[in-house]
């Protein structure tokens, strides 16, 4: 398992929305929903651009998802699996919040 890296302050996050960040040169997306932080890859495998952080967060039948802003496929925040096309997946990263900061590995 790779090391946790400090990304930003918790207060930089926007509740119920996403923001983009860089983790070891890779683009990631951070979401902050119901007090919980999620980190996924920011690259939309279908639209082929770094845009996932700009999608709308919501729930489908109880599961938290983000909708890609390009073509609106939904990805589970906890598993990264695409609801519409199960062969498309976002990488999910481990997250911890310590001392008001967000750490991702």
């Amino acid at each position: 398992m790779s090391e946790f890296i400090k990304i930003c302050a918790l207060s930089d996050l926007i509740p119920d929305a996403g923001i983009p960040a860089l983790l070891n040169g890779k683009a990631i997306a951070l979401f902050y929903v119901d007090g919980q932080v999620y980190a996924l890859s920011n690259y939309d495998p279908i639209g082929q651009a770094n845009v996932i952080s700009r999608g709308i967060v919501g729930s489908i039948k109880g599961e938290l998802v983000v909708a890609s802003p390009l073509y609106k496929e939904h990805y589970s925040l906890s598993t990264g699996v695409c609801v519409e096309k199960s062969d498309a997946t976002l990488t999910v990263y481990a997250v911890k919040v310590e001392g008001g900061d967000v750490w991702v590995a």
Partner: peptide, 22 residues
């Protein structure tokens, strides 16, 4: 406004139309 940001499609959130490359 912060509480409205999560409601916006990306175009409204960044006040421009998103292109294919973001």
């Amino acid at each position: 406004d912060k509480k409205n940001i999560p409601l916006q499609d990306t175009n409204d959130r960044y006040l421009g139309n998103m292109q294919k490359d973001g």
